[in-house]
Structure formats: C-alpha cells, structure tokens
Design a protein around this nucleic acid. Structure first.
Length: 532
DNA sequence: AAAAAAC
C-alpha cells in the first residue's frame, strides 16, 4: 500500500539504501530542519536496523551485477532482439518467408542505427525511420502535419527523431538521450500530435513538464507551430490560468507546465485539476526534474497521471543511470534510445579552456576577446544571481549591447530580456543557469562559461546553447586556480566529444565530481572609493 | 557553497 502512494520516491528509497553514506547525511539534514512536512518521505525515519545493513550490502552486490548487464544492454546488436524464435515444429514455407523477411528488416534496422549512431535496448524496438515520408506510409500521418514539417524546413529526421518517433508511435514508453540541439522537442511533440488525432472534448490529454518557465514557453511555441491547422488546444500553465480557470471544465490537448505549478493545481481543494485522462506525459530535461528539490513535485505529477495506458517518456542530453533506475520503478517495458557517446557534448561545438588566473583576469580576458572579435549573439554563464548583476554593471558601459537574466527578475522582465536577445537588440546575454538547459536561441555562435559550471552535465547543457541544428558553435570556459581540481571532468567531456585535449589535462588526477561552487572574489575591479 | 521550481 505504501508503494502506491509514493511512485518515483519508492525508487529513491531503494536507491538510497545503496548509497548508505549519502543517505545518512541526507537524513540528518532532513531531521535537523524537521518541520513535519515530510509525509511522503516518512520512510526515511526507519533505518539503521541490522536488517537494513544487510540489505545495503546485498543491494550493493546487485548493483554491480546490474551495472555489467547494463553495459551489454548498450550493445546495438543485442538491443533489438526481435529475431524470430525457432520452434521445434516443422515450419512451413510461409513461416520461412516470414522469418527471412524479419531477418532482412532486422538487418536494415541495424545498419540504419549504426549509420546514425543510435543505440537501443528493450524488447522489440520498432524500426528507425528512413525518412519523414515514412510517417505517412508506415503510420498514416495526417497530411497537414507533414505539410507543417516541410514548411518549417525539416527535411531529414535527426537520429533521435528517426528512432524515438517510431518508439512513441508504437505506444512504447521510452528514455531518450541525444545531444543538445538535435531536435528532441520535435521527437516527442510530433508523435504526440499524430496520436492525439482529434481535439479533446473532455479533460487533459497530454502533459509536458519543463524545468523553467522560459523552456515551457519555448516548448509551447514549438508545439503550436507544429500543430498549425489543427484544432488542438495547446495551453501553457500560466499564473493567470491557475488563478482564473476552473480545472473541472478545462479541456485541452497539450498542457505545458513547470512541476511546481502543476503540483499546486493537483493539490488544490476546490477546482482541482484532473490528470486521470492524460494519455501522454513527457518529462523534458528529465535529469533536472529528478533532482532532489524537484523530485517530489515531479513525482506528484507522475502520480496524478493515473491513466493505466499512459505513455511516459524522458528526454535529455544527459541521462544518468540513477534517473533511469528510479523511473523504471514505474515505467512499463520502456525502450531506451541513446544517440552519440555517453558523457559527450554535441560534436559541432568547438570547446576551449582559458586560464584566467584570477577574477580580475576573467574580466580582462572577456574584454579582450570582445575587442578582438565579438561575434553576436553571445551567451555568458555565471554562477550566481549576484555575479550576473555585477558583471552586467561592469559591461553595460562598454558600448556593447548587453542584457542580464536570472530568477530575481519579474516574469515580465524575463520575457522582455529573452525577446530582446532573440530579436538581436542585445548582443551579449549574461545568465545564470536559468538558461542553461533546453533554450534554443537560433544564432548563438559562442557560449562563455565565465564561471566554471557546477558539474559535467551542466557544462554539456550550457555550451549546447550554441552549435544547434548542425551549425558550428563555440564553448569557451574560463578557469582559475580554484577550478583546477575540477578540470579533469571537463577534459573528459572534451575528449569524449572528439575535441583535442592537452595531455597535461588528461594527466590530472581523476576525481569524483562533487558539486563545485567555489566562493569567488567579486567580479568588479576594486571600487574607486577604496583608494581614498 | 547555487539556481530553479509558487503564492
């Protein structure tokens, strides 16, 4: 019974036992600021028995075993094991022909997957697409949808689209990992539009969860473009919608929201939102949605989408094992689709590391690089809101059109900043990690990590704001003495993405990545009044 | 050690 109430968190419980030390630390923290609001997490309280300790060591062994199985699972040839089963009975001619045809199909699938760097695992993985035209021949896609595709300039499906679209169209749940800027949004929106077919007459039929409001807005725009000409209702969960709508009466085909806002609507006493009819649920940037602070919110949405025939999918450019482990506790016979190398950034991005020495050195290096060649639009990432503001104050008098964005701005301000950047009114945009993931600014040629990213995943996502849709991009990362212990992790990503890495970097000691938030000197050169 | 996700 307990299991029924905690879905994804059940998975976490299992997971936590495996990592007993982290778990104990987390538990301590939970208890120390105990405010009684940990209903769903109550299982944390019963631990430390001898039986539990045994459970830990047993599951550790199991983990190792699973890990080795997983490696095999990545193998392309084992992945799509839809080869016909040989029976003892005499098979007649027809059976033989069927087997031959199946074998030919399997060979075609394998060739195609190999060609596009697609790795799959799972039972009976559907064949990848050879072209978009197959959407109508194989899946009876409506002509208006194909027309939209052409009009929006999509000619050839990207690898993730080739494989993830048939998987979703076949009604399979899936995990999808593919490089930044490789068309993941289309890969989950398009099959959704195809399967929804006719507009909703009651209730909500599909939900897309995004980790920031900016991404939710962008995703809605993409959805609307692709659905043009249909009668689908596509809605963004805005503050106004939450305030005004009576969710008992709201019906829409695709609802796009951030987790917290949707969770609130679920937990409302009056005008509660009904997600029991949801047929499709997408967790975009899913590893982000599975972070501690968001997991409980994500969980309540997953829990509320209780339609037994729901199709759920997880998309991201970085999909760590633990996310899949947790998600597998609720998913049915999911297919895994992985494009490209594990732990690599998009290959179309040129990656550079620059030693800036000190904070002052960073500012100098930035100004110098702008003086040499400013190739707008440029995105600059810093580690905190304060530093974003400080850098903005430094640059705004430099005759460069510069903007700044972070979560301390009002929603309206945030939207304006994004619009200005998209319209080319600002050339350089300084941002916190709000814009680190998912955002698609068409022409961004260069991303500068003014402050070192906090982990490899965030590095991959940040530089992935450039070099999208096959274009060339550049990712420049400044580092100081404080960051050197963490350089090796970035070097690994660079090596995995086919970048040249100086050998001394690879000689740095391997270190398990911990979140990296060094306390930094202030950005500005010393204020004038200090001289007085 | 941060940011983000509400009202």
């Amino acid at each position: 019974m307990e299991r029924d109430t905690s879905f994804l968190l059940t998975g976490i419980k299992f997971n936590k036992k495996r990592f007993a030390i982290d778990f104990a630390r987390f538990k301590k923290k939970k208890q120390s600021n105990d405010d009684g609001s940990v209903d769903d997490l109550s299982y944390f309280k019963r631990e430390h028995t001898e039986a539990d300790k045994v459970a830990v060591s047993v599951s550790k062994k199991r983990k190792r075993k699973n890990a080795s199985e997983r490696v095999e699972g990545f193998n392309v040839f084992k992945g799509s094991s839809s080869l016909p089963v040989v029976t003892n009975e005499e098979s007649d001619q027809e059976d033989n022909n069927q087997k031959k045809e199946l074998n030919r199909q399997n060979e075609r699938d394998l060739r195609l997957r190999k060609k596009y760097g697609i790795n799959v695992s799972g039972n009976d993985v559907p064949s990848p697409l050879q072209s978009f035209a197959e959407l109508s021949t194989r899946y009876g896609c409506d002509s208006y949808l194909l027309h939209n595709l052409v009009k929006l300039g999509f000619k050839e499906p990207t690898p993730i689209q080739r494989q993830a679209i048939p998987v979703l169209l076949s009604g399979r749940e899936c995990f999808a990992k593919a490089p930044t800027g490789s068309g993941k949004t289309l890969a989950f929106v398009y099959p959704m539009l195809m399967k929804l077919k006719h507009a909703s007459k009651d209730g909500i039929r599909a939900v897309i969860l995004c980790h920031t409001r900016e991404l939710a807005t962008q995703t809605m725009r993409e959805c609307k473009k692709m659905a043009k000409g249909s009668k689908f209702r596509i809605k963004l969960m805005t503050k106004e919608l939450v305030r005004n709508a009576d969710f008992a009466k709201v019906y829409c085909d695709i609802l796009i929201s951030t987790p917290r806002r949707l969770q609130l609507c679920i937990s409302k006493k009056k005008k509660k939102i009904d997600l029991s009819r949801v047929e499709y649920l997408v967790l975009d940037e899913s590893d982000k949605l599975f972070e501690h602070s968001l997991l409980e919110q994500t969980d309540s949405v997953v829990k509320a989408c209780c339609n037994p025939s729901i199709i759920r999918s997880l998309f991201s450019a970085t999909l760590p094992d633990f996310v899949e482990e947790v998600a597998r506790t609720v998913m049915h016979d999911a297919v895994r689709v992985i494009v490209g190398d594990k732990n690599a950034a998009s290959e179309s991005i040129k990656q550079k590391l620059i030693f800036a020495g000190t904070e002052e050195g960073k500012l100098l290096a930035l100004r110098q690089s702008f003086a040499e060649s400013l190739n707008p639009p440029v995105l600059i990432f810093v580690q905190s809101i304060e530093r974003a503001e400080a850098l903005y104050e430094e640059l705004k008098f430099d005759s460069i059109r510069v903007g700044v964005i972070h979560s301390n701005l009002s929603q309206e301000q945030r939207e304006n900043v994004i619009d200005d950047f998209r319209a080319g009114k600002t050339w350089v945009l300084i941002a916190t990690d709000v814009l680190g993931r998912g955002m698609d600014f068409k022409g961004v040629k260069c991303v500068i990590n003014y402050d070192f990213p906090d982990c490899a995943a965030s590095y991959i996502h940040r530089i992935g704001r450039s070099g999208r849709a096959g274009r060339i991009g550049e990712g420049i990362t400044f580092y100081t003495e404080d960051d050197i212990p963490y350089l090796r992790n970035i070097a690994n990503v660079m090596a995995a993405s086919g970048c040249e890495v100086p050998s001394w970097l690879m000689d740095l000691p391997k270190k398990k990545w911990k979140k990296h938030y060094p306390r930094r000197e202030s950005i500005a050169t010393k204020p004038k009044d200090q001289e007085e």
